[in-house]
Write a protein that binds this DNA or RNA. Structure first.
Length: 572
DNA sequence: GCCGTTTTCGGCCCGACTGTTTTCAGTCG
């Protein structure tokens, strides 16, 4: 199996950590990290680019040397430079960087002075009181090492969107009740609408800063105050979520919002542009010499550096700055563009609500259409429909449509793609549907080639319309199955098929990178909720967020079409 | 190690907070 972009990025980050502990040239360290960012966020897999003979040094932050290292990783799965670094510096030292207050310099000191080579070494030294004997270390650092060393692990913990919202919204509401508070804004990856959130960054403007800080750290859910200053505090909540609060003056609000929304890579790129123009950009504003020339709003900040406004969802330094400079930023799809939902379930299979209830909820959202797509027979746990029961549902939808006003229910089915590439129901019944939503629900472990061929074969069926949750991933629960997504996308476009962006916050499948790829290929995407109840039709907003991160505009999205245009597009 | 519309050498983002100091280096975002 070929190496994933994330594995290449991880390798570079590992090497960067070790080099940093070795006190290597900090810019060289940064070069590895920047390249890791590029690779992690790239729509195409490095392995494929190598196979196609692409010149990798054309990628941003990748030069001749790192291009060669990517080649080596793709060809051999290993990186000699990392092996060599690990021979000099024990790999376990990397994990110690995760202890609060320990960075590369101090880890290096521990390694050199106390001969620490493993986490066990470190724990023993801390328990014996030897850490505090090292110059620059004290009792607090030692206590923190003892406290945190047991919980270190390789895996990064990020919360899903739904969990992040459940934690963030009550906190924001609480902050808004504090006297003197004017604005409370969630920044960071939450504002960029990433599919998962590592910590929360909250920006506050207020008239009584000291009091606001006091009330923030006194929030019910706070279990640990990690840092607290005049303008900035960091706490950990009961849920484990870390929250950073920043108090900023009104004149700097836009600059601070831009700064704390990130991403870091985007910020650095914008700051470079400011520097090129002889300006200084920081979280307080844009400055010409000592004079602040912008700061109050983000629009002001962008204008001051000569750029049009860039939506937060795009700020990942993956081409948005160049696009902005050339005035070719896409107009991103938004909620009001959506005219219907093309994937939902009813009580007929594993949904919670009836046909009538789902129709009512869709009408209340102002939709023109709702495709009812219960499972097919193979998904027995979901009480999937066989041809007879699907025929009954088709009739029921026809009858209901006669009574509905302003909304049309589309006759659909989430048809299983069998492991031989056949569809789970006979063509005769599928042909009676307005559309099929086809999906893989078992045999996730097929080889990349067989999985790809399975789905390609399914697309050959003229009744195939939309590939649902195209990679099967469940955020934090299940990895995507191995599949050549690009090949599927190209085939889908050729065949007049579409791909779903499943809007369920646990899925968000397609990823943002995959949306970018679909856009490039010219394949239209259906943003669908896969709702199993009336209330989960609301998940549409998560799908829209994800689509916006993938630069999709209304034109790139299937369900922004009128019913008439949609029917035309569904004809193969 | 990367990068270039002043460049192939000489730059590379920047401020707040902490702990351990006694004026600041290291960490963090």
């Amino acid at each position: 199996m070929s190496i994933h972009n994330s594995e290449i990025a991880d390798t570079f980050e590992k090497l960067a950590d070790l080099l940093e502990i070795e006190n290597a040239n900090p810019f060289r360290v940064r070069a590895y990290r920047n390249a890791a960012l590029t690779i992690r966020g790239h729509a195409r897999s490095m392995a494929e680019l190598v196979a196609e003979g692409e010149d990798l040094s054309k990628l941003p932050a990748v030069g001749k040397d790192l291009a060669a290292k990517i080649h080596t990783l793709v060809k051999t799965g290993e990186l000699p430079a990392l092996k060599q670094a690990e021979a000099r510096t024990p790999g376990a030292l990397r994990l110690m960087l995760k202890i609060d207050g320990l960075g590369p310099k101090r880890v290096r000191t521990l390694h050199q002075v106390l001969k620490i080579r493993s986490l066990r070494d470190l724990e023993r030294a801390a328990l014996n009181g030897r850490v505090r004997s090292v110059p620059g270390f004290g009792a607090k650092t030692e206590a923190r090492i003892i406290d945190q060393i047991g919980q270190l692990s390789e895996v990064e913990t990020r919360s899903g969107r739904l969990v992040a919202e459940e934690i963030a919204q009550p906190l924001v509401a609480y902050l808004q009740t504090i006297r003197g508070v004017k604005q409370v804004t969630l920044a960071g990856s939450y504002r960029r609408r990433r599919d998962s959130v590592g910590d929360l960054d909250i920006l506050v403007t207020a008239t009584r800063n000291a009091a606001v800080m006091q009330r923030f750290v006194a929030y019910d859910e706070v279990v640990d105050v990690i840092a607290q200053g005049r303008t900035r505090a960091t706490v950990r909540l009961h849920s484990g979520m870390q929250v950073d609060l920043r108090l900023v003056p009104q004149v700097s609000y836009g600059a601070a919002l831009h700064y704390f929304t990130g991403s870091k890579a985007h910020n650095i790129a914008v700051r470079r542009i400011a520097m090129d123009r002889g300006l200084k950009l920081n979280e307080y504003g844009v400055f010409k010499d000592e004079k602040r020339i912008a700061g109050r709003t983000e629009q002001e900040i962008f204008a001051a550096v000569g750029l049009p406004y860039i939506e937060p969802e795009m700020r990942e330094n993956r081409g948005e700055i160049e696009a902005a400079r050339q005035d070719r930023l896409p107009l991103l799809v938004c909620g009001k563009d959506i005219r219907g939902d093309l994937h939902c379930h009813t009580k007929a299979s594993d949904g919670h609500d009836s046909l009538e209830e789902m129709a009512g909820a869709a009408r209340a959202k102002g939709y023109e259409y709702l495709a009812v797509s219960d499972h097919s027979r193979r998904v027995t746990v979901a009480h999937g429909l066989d041809a007879t029961r699907l025929a009954q549902q088709i009739d029921a939808i026809d009858r209901l449509n006669e009574t509905l006003e302003g909304l049309v229910l589309l006759k659909a089915c989430e048809v299983d793609i069998l492991d031989n590439g056949k569809l789970d129901l006979p063509d005769s019944i599928l042909a009676r549907l307005d559309l099929t939503v086809c999906a893989v629900h078992y045999k996730f472990a097929l080889s990349r080639q067989r999985q790809t061929e399975r789905i390609l074969r399914a697309m050959d069926n003229p009744n195939f319309n939309v590939l649902a949750h195209p990679t099967g991933r469940l955020i934090n629960q299940r990895n995507p199955y191995e599949v050549d997504l690009e090949r599927l996308m190209r085939a889908a476009r050729e065949n007049g098929c579409f791909m779903e962006l499943n809007a369920h916050p646990d899925r968000l499948d397609l990823t943002d990178e995959a949306c970018l790829m679909a856009r490039e290929i010219g394949l239209k995407v259906a943003i669908s909720t896969d709702a199993h109840s009336t209330s989960s039709l609301d998940f549409m907003r998560f799908g829209i967020d994800q689509a916006r991160r993938g630069w999709l505009s209304a034109n790139d999205v299937l369900n922004t079409r009128s019913l008439k245009a949609l029917r035309r597009l569904l004809r193969r």
